[in-house]
């Protein structure tokens, strides 16, 4: 909102704000409104259709013409059927556990590494950062098989350790890179002042850098949680056991039981699985535009 207010002040300096100008401004932006409306319509159509069909009976779904945008009458049958088909609370719990087990150690180790890369001088820092960037760009498939064999040898498959241990080792080069970009944009004066007051690097990191980096850290929380919600490969490899399956795997089994596809319950469960992510992105989006910076990407 603040952005809009500043923009308005910029376009309408005090005293020149008249009704005529407001009207002309709406006309001037008519094209923008039209384009935004068209784009949002296209983008939101599938989502709307998912919601709409979640509340339809199978008979209502079969009527393809005329298109029934708003279901009439509304039924909740699909939610009841979908809910009974699987132990969704278990899968939700597993998804949240995966998110937390990956998020907390990754964040801790990546913040440390990013701080060293961004604000400390040491020989080879540029070279190691280049290595980090290359790892970021390497397809995961290259390391997927050997990692799986390693984990299997250690007997970790079917436990949470494959999520926890690599996360403790900053195994997220993209996060290291993005955090480092943000950290180095924080003015040096603050940390220098703290250093003269006798603070060491851990205190500076904890008291100055982290509080100032809330947008980017919030963004990382959103990204990792979304990953846990979406990823197919990791649960397929390591969390295959029914009692450990995440929502993605549960939904996958749900889709897989085709033949007599139960469209209604499928739509209903898609809606339910989506809702927490919608809430999360609503919370996360305001951080995004402040959180992401690429200035000085070169070195």
């Amino acid at each position: 909102m603040a952005g809009i207010r500043t923009a308005r002040r910029y376009i309408f300096p005090a005293g020149r704000f008249t009704l005529g100008m407001r009207a002309s401004r709406i006309i001037q932006h008519a094209n923008a409104y039209l384009l935004i409306a068209a784009f949002l319509f296209l983008a939101l159509l599938p989502v709307f259709w998912m919601f709409s069909n979640a509340f339809k009976t199978l008979e209502q779904m079969r009527i393809t013409f005329p298109i029934q945008w708003i279901p009439n009458p509304v039924t909740l049958e699909n939610f009841a059927d979908g809910w009974r088909a699987r132990d969704w609370l278990l899968h939700l719990r597993n998804t949240l556990m995966l998110a937390v087990f990956v998020l907390v150690p990754t964040m801790a180790s990546c913040v440390l590494a990013a701080y060293a890369f961004a604000r400390m001088r040491f020989p080879g820092s540029e070279l190691l950062m280049m290595l980090n960037i290359s790892l970021m760009l390497m397809p995961d498939f290259v390391t997927m098989v050997p990692r799986f064999v390693m984990m299997a040898r250690m007997g970790w498959v079917g436990t949470w350790l494959p999520a926890i241990i690599p996360s403790m080792l900053a195994l997220n080069p993209a996060m290291v890179f993005v955090l480092r970009q943000f950290f180095r944009a924080i003015p040096n004066e603050l940390s220098e002042a703290a250093r003269l007051d006798g603070c060491n690097d851990l205190v500076i990191l904890w008291r100055i850098i982290i509080p100032l980096s809330k947008p980017i850290l919030a963004l990382q929380i959103v990204i990792v949680t979304a990953w846990a919600w979406n990823d197919l490969l990791f649960p397929l490899l390591y969390l295959k056991d029914k009692s450990m399956q995440t929502l993605t795997l549960a939904m996958m089994g749900f889709i897989g039981s085709r033949g007599d596809t139960q469209w209604g319950p499928m739509m209903a469960m898609s809606v339910l699985v989506s809702l927490p992510m919608m809430a999360l992105s609503y919370y996360g989006q305001r951080y995004f535009t402040e959180g992401f910076t690429l200035t000085g990407i070169k070195g």
Partner: peptide, 22 residues
């Protein structure tokens, strides 16, 4: 508008797959 634009991206892959199948 910005919030609405983000909504499609929040549908988890498995949910989106189901919807697009339909």
């Amino acid at each position: 508008f910005r919030t609405l634009a983000l909504v499609p991206g929040t549908v988890p892959v498995a949910g989106a797959a189901a919807v697009f199948l339909f």
